[in-house]
Design a protein around this nucleic acid. Structure first.
Lengths: 150, 150
DNA sequence: TCCTTATAGTAAGCTAGACTGACTATAAGA
DNA sequence: TCTTATAGTCAGTCTAGCTTACTATAAGGA
């Protein structure tokens, strides 16, 4: 079992490949249902917006752990696709609140379904309980990193 | 615990962020020891070459799950840095065998140490046993994907 | 009140790490 | 021998981040 013995040296590789694996599975399922043109970078917006409603770009950026400038670009793209719209923030005239359009809400349904599909594929391999545990552990590693940064 | 309930919808995000987290930790540790100029894409070569010795670019590409053309570029860069060298394959005059230079062998030691450092950071958060289990589970997901492709 | 500093957003251009498509040279099999 | 497959090369594209530099508004203190 040389594979097992050297596991720790492959951690980076495993993470990189798993990220690609997920993206490919998700894209495949989305494409199969006719959804196109929305890349990986766009999805973090929908995750956050789906839970928190209208938000400022800065907050989206922080949630996705990317620079505000990068998030702006993503938001502009989504706006051009007609999936989100922006309105001035009544509480801060510098800021703009980003929210779904009708099309955006339709898209997030597609996204949820495809994510669910991929999840079931993973759960079929590891078992639901182990799959939950695995990704929960990764979440813990991320949370620990956050705590250190504060 | 809304976070827990929606875990499955965040799987892609978790993987993307964990990949970045690992790269950042590794780069930080490498930089702290004065190693620079070797990016994430270069490391897969060292992992494979470290275990299997002199190899052809095609095989490296397959192991890293990228296109041969992409791997060629990486190899050329490593060659320019003096970390690997290429010799004609006696068994196939189309092919060239890629192997470490002295500098390459020195680098892989640095890389191992830094990877070990990051691993200990993760193990400190989750515990060694759970950490091994977590990445072993991800490995299983990858292996399952391989099996399907064959 | 004015002045300083911080924050929200914008714009331009760079970098890393993959990709596709088109090509040459050698190998291998019908 | 002729055809097809394989190893490598070259040129250009794409994605998802980044940095640097800027404007406009907000907020807090002298």
């Amino acid at each position: 079992m040389t594979r097992r013995r050297q596991l720790r040296y492959e951690v980076g590789q495993i993470l990189m490949l798993m990220t690609r694996d997920f993206q490919q599975r998700l894209d495949a399922d989305l494409a199969a249902r006719g959804v196109r043109g929305v890349g990986a970078r766009h999805r973090s917006v929908f995750l956050f917006l789906g839970r928190n409603g209208a938000s400022r770009a800065v907050d989206l950026a922080q949630a996705a752990r990317i620079r505000p400038q990068s998030m702006m670009k993503i938001v502009h793209e989504l706006e051009a696709m007609g999936l989100v719209e922006r309105h001035p923030d009544p509480a801060d005239s510098r800021a703009k609140l980003i929210d779904f359009t009708e099309g955006g809400r339709a898209f997030i349904d597609e996204l949820s379904q495809s994510t669910e599909t991929v999840w079931r594929q993973y759960a079929a391999i590891l078992g639901e309980r182990v799959a939950v545990q695995t990704f929960d552990n990764l979440n813990q590693l991320l949370a620990a990193g956050d705590a250190k940064r504060d």
